[in-house]
Design a protein around this nucleic acid. Structure first.
Lengths: 172, 172
DNA sequence: ATTAATAATGAAAATGAAAGTCAAGATCAA
DNA sequence: TTGATCTTGACTTTCATTTTCATTATTAAT
C-alpha cells in the first residue's frame, strides 16, 4: 500500500542547475533566486517555454502588456499560447519579480522588479512611452501627508500623464 | 416632404427647470451647470431615474464602483438596471462632473468632481477606505521632474496605499 | 534509460466588467 | 394630444483574463 505524499515535503530544485538554464545577467540574479525559491516551494518544474519568456522579459526590461509580450515571444517560441504568457507573468508577480500597473489603459502592464529604489512613471499620452524616474523629494512629502493622517504607508503609485519631449517636437 | 433635422440645432433645455428637478446643494451648482450644458448639447432629455442616480451620487460624494452604486440605488429606485448606472456615470464623466480611478482593483471607481484643487488619495488596504488629501508640495516636485525630462504635464494620479488610522488601532 | 508521478502546455470554454442593441415606455415642444 | 426622439431594462456583445482539460514534458527514483 502506498502513502499519500503531501505537497509539503518538496525538495528544493538546485538553483545552480536552473540558473544554468535560464540565462540571466548578474543584476537580476537575486530576482532569479526568488523565482527559484518560489518554484521550489510550489513544486513547479522547469520548462523551456517559461524560461524563454522569463529570459526575454528580463532582457527587454520594458513595461509590457500581455499582448505585446505575446507578439514578440511567439517569433522566438512558435506555438506559444496566450495562456502561458499570462501564467508566467502571474508567476513572476507572485514571486515578486514583476509588478503590475494600469497607466490609464484597460490592459495591465507588467514591469520587471530589479531596481532598489522606488520609482514612478511619466506616461506620454501621444506615443505611449513610459519614462521611469526617481526623486527623493516625494518621499518627504509622502511621509508628511501620512503622518498628518496617521496613515501607515505600505506603497505608492504615482503617474504623471502628459506629452513627452519627442512628441512635443514633432508638432501635431 | 420632410427635412432631416440634424442634431445640430437643438434648443437648450432651460437650466432653471432642470435644476428644480435635480435637487443639488449650492456647492455643486457649477457641476450641475456643466451637466445641463452637456445634456443640452447632446439633446438629452430629463429622466427621473438619471436624476435620482445623479442626486444620490452627488449627495453621497464617495468613490463608488458601479456595483456599489447599483446596490444602493436599487433600494431607492426599484427596477433600476445595471446599464443605467453605467450610462449615467459615463455621462457624468463625459461632462466633467465625475472622474474615474483604479485603486489597484479591477473595478473602476467614480468620484464626484467638485473641488477646485487637484487632490490625491490614501487607500486603506484593510478596510478599503479612501481618504482624499491635497498638498501643494507635490506640485513643485512634479514640475521639477517634468522639467528635467522636458515633459509637458497634463495630469497626474497619486495613490498612497497602506493602513488607515482606524485599522491600525483595531489591531489584527 | 525506463518509469511513474505530476507539472506545463495550448485550445477552448468560462468569467467578469463594460459597452452596445433594441423594443417598449417616457419626455418634450408645439 | 401628438409625433419625434430620448431613456430604460433586458439582453447580447466585446474584450481582457482565468480556468479547464486532454496531451505532452519534466523529474526523481528506479
Amino acid at each position: 500500500m502506498k502513502m499519500k505524499v503531501k505537497i509539503k515535503n518538496k525538495k528544493e530544485v538546485s538553483p545552480e542547475r536552473l540558473s544554468k538554464r535560464i540565462k540571466i545577467s548578474p543584476k537580476n540574479r537575486n530576482g532569479l533566486e526568488r523565482l527559484l525559491k518560489c518554484q521550489a516551494k510550489r513544486g513547479l518544474k522547469y520548462s523551456k517555454k517559461r524560461a524563454a519568456i522569463i529570459e526575454y522579459f528580463i532582457k527587454a526590461d520594458r513595461h509590457y502588456t500581455v499582448e505585446q509580450l505575446y507578439n514578440e515571444i511567439k517569433e522566438i517560441v512558435p506555438n506559444i499560447g496566450y495562456s502561458t504568457i499570462y501564467r508566467t507573468l502571474r508567476l513572476l508577480v507572485d514571486c515578486g519579480m514583476a509588478r503590475t500597473h494600469h497607466f490609464g489603459e484597460t490592459d495591465t502592464r507588467f514591469e520587471l522588479v530589479h531596481k532598489e529604489q522606488h520609482h514612478d512613471h511619466l506616461v506620454c499620452e501621444k506615443c505611449g512611452r513610459i519614462i521611469e524616474f526617481t526623486n527623493n523629494g516625494i518621499e518627504k512629502f509622502q511621509n508628511a501627508v501620512a503622518k498628518e493622517h496617521n496613515f501607515l504607508v505600505k506603497n505608492r503609485e504615482l503617474q504623471i500623464f502628459g506629452v513627452c519631449k519627442r512628441c512635443q517636437q514633432r508638432k501635431r
